[in-house]
Structures are given as structure tokens and as C-alpha cells.
Nucleic acid binder design. Structure first.
Lengths: 223, 223, 223, 223
DNA sequence: AATGAATGAGCATTCATTCAT
DNA sequence: GATGAATGAATGCTCATTCAT
């Protein structure tokens, strides 16, 4: 129809988003394979038929959910990055803190990214690997550029970037398993120290602590 | 029971092992959820009925497979550890190298552990989290003990241990995705440096290189 | 829910009923355990999926079928009962006649009740026992009340009630086995006599015969 | 082998009997359809292979079990019958008492006969119907002969015989369902009265009571 | 746009029976 | 005679997807 007014489109987008959010929640609760399309539709208060009007299928929905989360992470990362006064300790700490903050605020999303998105099928696995590589690529660049002017010990930037990115993994998995309201962001400082040292970057402890705090403030404001 | 000769029992054990090995291979190729019991039985050259004679079900098989891999990792780790001349740089390097070596030699097992074992179901997820915690616990101990006599910077041992354990993750995932015969153990040195520095442990680069090499020799011999 | 028109609901109910009727027929022909869900679906001209849309499972279907038959028997019994001019000979004869008439008209239902419903599983067996007890309870009441004003010989009302209810059993089983179009209701008179005498109730033979006939007329009319 | 000595044959028979008894017990506990050959073999302490040496299959075993029970009932009935001083009240009471006594002493057998043997499959159903008819035939004879010299009211001997035989049914089913150690034989008197009256047979109450008691004594002695 | 009835391929699991040892 | 590993057909049930209304 040529008369898809802006309003109509917005309503449509809103429903898409509702479905995506509901799916994230349900996938997180029951797992991708134990969640049926009927479950999602039911939870979202729509019919299966409607579901298929908005999404091509269950897998496509998941891919879109995944992409939207990756995008959200990128946007948040971009937001906290200080590219004018570039400083590796500052920006790495900010990135780490921002990541933990996001997982913390959307436990369901953490589950989807770190657990449900794993081992879906070979095709998705490839996509996931590529998205990891994307994340690593910029890190690798940072490391290489930093190395030029600083006496650091990074035998292999790629390995370092992959290691750095991995570093969140079990921390979040462990947090997901714990019921208690433990704060994931409380680990931001320690995790930053771990990775900064790992790269042989010089830093002052109190400045790291400050970076963590200022990042959290920024994020809470923007929320 | 008469005539349950040792020979018969051995044949039975061998068949169990055959099924486990076949399952690891097939799960790695097609993924847990896209592998049917019929697939496994077919690939192993037995009937579905036989499968169920040896295993209670598909999930039970997976759990056993998982446990056997965890055990194999533990045993290999124990083997390469030098507990008499205890040195953290040496032993951490050895553990890292041994882990990479094992993944390298059993690509299927790497896939099962890092990909297929993730997100199976809540119960298994708990088991997995516990097995991760087990691994971390001993690391945490090492770190704490080391801290007593050495001037290191580890704000939180638990976070450090979880970060350390995670460090393999994307490295192996990335390697699994690459078809080429890239050597995973080639990253042992860089990964060791990353983690040793992360903990603020003092070391000589050449000695790390030597630890990597001696570990690989040990493992190849034992094979 | 919009457009859940009465018509749609009726079509749905009709399909449920179709499945129930088909199931009764197929269970009667092949027996519960030798009937697969696929059989029922095929015979009803629907897919297995549809079957499971209407019923939770094979057993649940059977339970519902059983319940619906029990209900039908109760309703028919209630219909033929003359509670205004209460007379034990009359009402007992009517109940006996009505029961035989129902079995006669739905041979499949007779089979399901007397044969297929037996020994399904412990849970169902309990349910069946309870439904028998229900039937007996009211009989027991009748007997006790009757005893007050009449010189009858009933040493134990419960035993009498159970015996009375049983009395149909082999008669119907025997009839089910016979292919010929023997009329089960032809035994209504003899069976009534048996049970009336058993309870020591006084009656006139010709009046019993009349009760049988008037009951059959009522039932044929209502059909 | 031509050297199947008597001793060997006896051992074989004993094992057959063991399997039959075990089967009765297990069928009674779990039901025919929920009992596997493995279950029976396991419970009997033999291998499945052995089971198939002694019996052609599961169904054949059941048929033989059924036949043996029918035979046992016949033998017991024959035993308690007083054919020299033939009296219908006496012999009917004796038969009723003996039947209840047998069910009481072998709850498993009661279950097998009244529950598990029902609805096995069409072929067996036919067999069962025939065995019921057999039982009825002699009753019918008794009734007809008795009628000649006594003023009884039995409009149809066949119906009477079927009703008589049925009379045990729900009484035993109800008893099977009750956990308590209620005595089934306590109902012998009431049930005898019910059936004797049903046939219009004259009797003295105290003599019936005596018949019940003497039958129980006989049976307990013979046990 | 929305609904939910309909489909049927697919899957885990069971179990009576056979047979080599 | 005894054993128990091996077989594979059969079955109840699920669920992603389609489509008539």
C-alpha cells in the first residue's frame, strides 16, 4: 500500500520492538531452543500469525535481535569513548565499564549474547565470529598505534585483542548464574586493571577508578 | 552372571567410547540440536537401539561427553604442572600451552566445549558454571598465595581468575572458524605474556618461550 | 480476540466431537493400545498436528471420551427415572433397560467402557473405580431407604449395589462378541427380574414387562 | 536331546512356574502394557534370552498365565462342590465363597483376571469371552435342571448365568482399589444371598452362613 | 493487519524378539 | 541351557510455518 503513513509505520516499528524485547526476555528465560514462536507471540500478546507478519521466522528474529544488541553495544561504546583527548587507559576503562554496565542493566540481553547466541547453527556461528572479529579489529588498531609511541610488550596484537574481548566472558556467565543482586559493574575496576596490565600500559590506579566512576555517571544520565 | 569375561567388558567399553567419540565429531559438525540420535548411531555404525543400550539418552550422552572432556583437561593440566619447583610463570605458561594444545588436537572437542556445551538448558548451564568455578578456584588460590611474597597488582583475585580463564575463549572460537590449518599453539606465547603481565608477574621472555616449547614436547611425547 | 464468531467456535466444537467419535470407533475396533494417534487422525481426516491442537494427548483424549460417556449414561438414566411416583421396581427396571439400550445403540461405546477402559494404567484405574463407586452410592441409598418400609433381605447394601452394577458386565461382553444382530435390550426383562428378586423386592411380572417397553419407547422418541 | 531326564524336566517346569508367578506379580503391579519382558526377566532373576527359551513371547506367556488361572479356579470350584448331596443353595454358596477366597489369596491373580486380561487384543478377547461362556454353560445347566423340580422364576437361564458370573466383578475391582486389608470373603454371605434370591431359590439364612464357613475351612486346610 | 486452525516432517525413545557366544 | 548385546519398526508428541477468513 502506498499510504503507509508515518504514523502507521511508527506503530509497526513499535510492535516489532515489542516483539524483539519480548523475545529477548523469553529466550533468556527458557533458551532459544526451548522457546517456541507460540511462546513469544503469547508473551507479547499477539497471535502467531501476527508474528509472521513482522518477522520472517524464528531464526530471522534472533538474528535481528542479535544485530540490534551488537549495535546498541557499539553505540554505547562510541558514546563513552573520548576520541578528542585520546588515552588508552581512559578509553579502555570506559569501554570495559560500559560493557559491564550494559550487561548489568539488561540481564536478558547478556544471556542472549553470551549463551543463547552460541551454537545456534553453523551459519550463525560464522556471523558471530565475524562480529567478534569486528570488535577485535579496532582494538588491534589501538594496540598497534599505541605501541609506536609507548614501550609495551604485546607479542601479537590479534591475540591480545581476542584475549581482551574474551575477558568479559566467564565474569558475566558467572554473574548470570548468581541469583543475588551482585553488581557486575563492581568488577569494572579490577577487570580494567587486568587488561591494562596485560598490555603493559602505564597508568595510575586512582585515575582508573575515576574513569570507571565517570563512565557510570555518564551512562546513568543518558539512560 | 557367568562368562562376563574381561574381554566382553572391554568390547563393551570400546563401543561406549566409540559412541562418545562419534558423538563429539557429529556434534562438532552439525551442532547438538541439529544432530539426531539416529545421526550419531548411523555414523557410529550401530542401530538406535544399541545407542540406547549404552546411553540413557541424548542429553545424558552429552553430559558424559562433557564430563570426560573436563576430566581429560584436568588430567593433562595436572600432568604438565611442575609442583615441585613451583613457579607461577612456568606453571601458568604450561597450563595455557597445554590447553591450546588439547584444543588443537581435538578440534571437535574444542567445538563441543566452547560452543555446543553453551546454552543447552538451564540444568546443564548450572553444571557448566560450576565447572568453570572449579577451574577458577585453584587459580584464585595460586594468585592469593603468590601475592603474599610478590609485589603484584591484583585488585580482586576472583575477577582475575575469571578473566584468565576466559582469555582462551574467542581465541579458540576464532581459530575454529578458520578453515586453514593455522596452529593454535602458536598463540601460546602471546597468550601467556598477556596473562602474566595482567597479573603483574615478573618473567623473562625467553624463559616463557622455553616453557611453551618444553610443554609441547612433553605433550607430544605422551600422546 | 476479535471475530471469534459463534460460528467459528461451533466448527471447532464440531471437530472436537468428530475426533471423539472417531476415536470411540477406532478404539472399539482395534483397542486402545493398538490404536495410534496417527490412526485416529487419519480416520478422522485430519493431521496429527490438528489432533494435538484439539487434545493434549492420546490419554487425555481417552479420559475425555470416558467422561463424556459416563455423563451420557447419567443423563439418560436421569431422563428415564420417575422420581415423582417413585417405585423401586419401576425405576430399577427403567435404569436397567436404559443402560442396555445405550450399549445397544453405541456398540463402540460399550466396548470402550467395558473393555478398553479397563487396565489402562493405575491412575485411570482409580478414576474408573471412583466412577463405579459413584454409581453404587446412589443405588445403596435407594436400597437403604427401601428397606425401611419393606421387608427385604439385603444383608449388605454396598455388596448389593456392587453386585447390581456388575450384573451388566458379562451380558454386554458376551453380546459384543456375537456378530449377529442379537438385541441386547431383549435381555432387559430377564435382567430386571434377576436383580429385583435378588433384592427381595415384590413385583408383578407383567408390570416389569410394561416398564421395559415404556422405557424403550421413551428412549426411541428422544433419540 | 533325547536325554531329558525327569529331573531336568522338573527343573525346567519349576523355572517356567517361577516365570509365570513372577509375571503375575509384575503384571498386577504395573499392568500388562507397562511391563516389558526385560522387567519380568529381571524380576525373576533370569536373562531375557532365558525367558524366550521358556516362552514363545510375551503374549504367549500371558495366555498361559490366564489359562493356568482359569484352571486353578476350575479345580478349586470342583473341589468345594458337593455333587453327591447336590443342593443348589449349598453349591452356589460354596462356589461364590471359593471364588472370593481365591481372589483374596492372590490379589495379583485377581488383578490379572479382572483387569489385565481385559482388552489385550481382539484374539484374546474372543478367548476370554469363550472362557466366560464355559463358566456360564454349567451354571445354565444347573438352573435349568433346578427349575424342573422347583418353582423358581428365571425368565432366561443364559441371562441369569451371565448375571451371576458378573456379580463378582465390581466387588473385586472395588476391593483391589482399597489398600486396606479388608477381607473380600466377608462379602461371601451377602453375595450368596443376592444371587440365591435372584434365582428365586429357597434357603435358610443360617444354613448359607454355615456353607460359607465350611467352605473357608476346607480351603484353608487344603492350602 | 490480525487471527488461529491446520499441516506434517522430524525426533527421542521404547521394546519384543533374535542370535552369536 | 544361558546370556545380553543388537536390532529397527513403531509411536507419541513438537513446532515452525502457512493461509483462509
Amino acid at each position: 500500500m502506498y499510504r503507509t503513513s508515518k504514523e502507521t509505520q511508527e506503530r509497526k516499528d513499535a510492535k516489532r520492538q515489542l516483539i524483539l524485547d519480548t523475545a529477548a526476555k523469553v529466550f533468556a528465560e527458557r533458551g532459544y531452543h526451548h522457546t517456541s514462536v507460540k511462546d513469544i507471540a503469547g508473551e507479547a500478546g499477539i497471535s502467531v500469525g501476527s508474528f509472521y507478519f513482522y518477522f520472517k521466522g524464528k531464526e530471522e528474529l534472533f538474528v535481528e535481535l542479535y544485530d540490534s544488541i551488537v549495535l546498541a553495544f557499539q553505540q554505547t561504546t562510541d558514546m563513552v569513548l573520548d576520541i578528542h583527548n585520546f588515552s588508552l587507559p581512559k578509553n579502555m576503562t570506559r569501554v570495559i565499564t560500559a560493557n559491564l554496565w550494559m550487561y548489568q542493566n539488561r540481564r536478558d540481553i547478556a544471556r542472549v549474547m553470551l549463551i543463547e547466541a552460541v551454537g545456534l547453527n553453523p551459519a550463525f556461528e560464522k556471523k558471530r565470529a565475524e562480529s567478534i572479529q569486528d570488535s577485535c579489529r579496532s582494538m588491534e588498531e589501538w594496540f598497534k598505534r599505541f605501541k609506536i609511541n609507548n614501550p609495551v610488550r604485546i607479542p601479537n596484537e590479534r591475540v591480545a585483542a581476542l584475549a581482551f574481548e574474551s575477558t568479559f566472558h566467564y565474569l558475566v556467565v558467572d554473574w548470570l548464574q548468581s541469583d543475588e543482586e551482585r553488581k557486575l559493574t563492581d568488577s569494572a575496576y579490577a577487570l580494567s586493571i587486568y587488561n591494562l596490565q596485560a598490555l603493559g600500559i602505564q597508568f595510575q590506579e586512582h585515575e582508573i577508578q575515576r574513569y570507571v566512576e565517570e563512565t557510570l555517571s555518564m551512562l546513568e544520565e543518558q539512560k
